Computed example of a mutant assay.
Amino acid sequence: MHTIDDLLRIMATLRNPDGGCPWDVQQDFDTIAPYTIEEAYEVADAIDRRDYSQLCDELGDLLFQVVFHARMAEEAGHFRFADVVEAICTKMVRRHPHVFAGAEVADAQAQTRAWESHKRAEREARGESDNSLLAGISRGMPEWQRARKLQARAATVGFDWPDVAPVFDKLHEEIDEVRAEFAGGDAERLNDEIGDLLFVSVNIARHAKVDVSRALRSANAKFERRFRRMEQLAVDAGGLKGMTLAQQDALWDRAKAEEKSAATEI
């Protein structure tokens, strides 16, 4: 059975300019970062599909990304993999005093507030001067996720809709504004209004406690599944390309009906 030490040795060998892998040797933090993000999404996809064998494999790929970054950092004299482990262990103990230091926390919501308080104290200890409630929300995450975090932080001081009803009103308002900008033809204003519409959509998902990324992955999978079925149904007619939109819509409706029928039978 291999250990983490074996993985660290493999990574060092791959990065060795003398006999290592030319591709691995050429990489740096900037070139590897997109792969790190991709592997995280593949982990989420395996979880969505409840494919635990694939999840094991994808977690390995994600771990390899951590090892890759740590190896490059060690080569540059910044830190080692052991420092990464030490830092996260120390942080987890520090941010969970109710588990490791005898403190008390009422519930999960109280722990979330305490977590943000710990993070704020850590930023102050590092000498960061941004005292905004919104400080520390990474600009490197997907924008939908950053929107949700901005909204959640603001909500901690009461700047939030009391319930979802007015958020739906706001959604309809933003749709009307997008429609107006489509007619107006101003590309920059249209960009702005579509951004507002997406921001409100994230807010609805937050109130519903729905993960936007998971919901969109589900919608993408559903669209892909139904479109592929349409392609199958259109083979005898020479394919979708030669069909009218009405004919294509009929196949789409058929694909939907088949899904519903199959779900009913289960």
Rank of each mutant, 00 (worst) to 15 (best):
A154T: 01
C89A: 14
D45C: 01
F223K: 10
E181M: 09
A262G: 02
G239H: 01
E181F: 04
E42F: 03
D192S: 06
E128R: 06
R228G: 06
R228W: 03
T90G: 10
L63W: 01
I47A: 13
D211Y: 10
D253K: 08
T112P: 00
V66C: 14
F227E: 03
W23S: 04
V43Q: 00
R49C: 08
D253L: 07
A110D: 08
R217Q: 15
A108H: 06
N191D: 08
F168W: 12
F227I: 09
A12Q: 13
C89G: 02
E174Y: 04
E174L: 03
K260C: 10
C89D: 15
N16S: 09
G20M: 04
G77T: 11
F168E: 05
Q247I: 11
L62W: 02
A40S: 12
A108L: 07
V202F: 08
E193I: 07
I10Q: 06
E128K: 09
G77S: 09
R206A: 15
N191E: 12
T13N: 11
P34W: 07
I32P: 00
E258N: 10
I37D: 13
M11Q: 15
A234E: 05
V25E: 08
Y35I: 10
V84I: 08
L197G: 05
S53G: 13
Q54W: 04
D163M: 02
E104W: 10
D57K: 04
Q26F: 00
N220A: 14
T264Y: 02
A44N: 05
H207D: 08
G184Q: 10
A114K: 06
F100P: 01
F227T: 07
A44C: 08
K119Q: 09
V200W: 03
G77Y: 08
E86S: 12
L251I: 03
G60S: 12
G238D: 03
L14W: 02
R254Y: 02
R226I: 07
L245C: 00
I194G: 00
A110K: 03
A82D: 15
V67E: 02
D48N: 15
R123E: 10
L133F: 03
S261H: 14
A154Y: 05
R15C: 11
E42K: 06
L251V: 03
A82R: 10
E104A: 15
P162S: 14
E188V: 08
Q27K: 12
V66G: 13
C21F: 06
D163C: 11
T36E: 01
L171Q: 09
R229E: 14
G102V: 09
H118N: 05
E224N: 13
L134S: 09
K91N: 07
D163Q: 05
A147M: 13
R95Y: 14
G20F: 01
L134E: 13
S201D: 03
G238S: 05
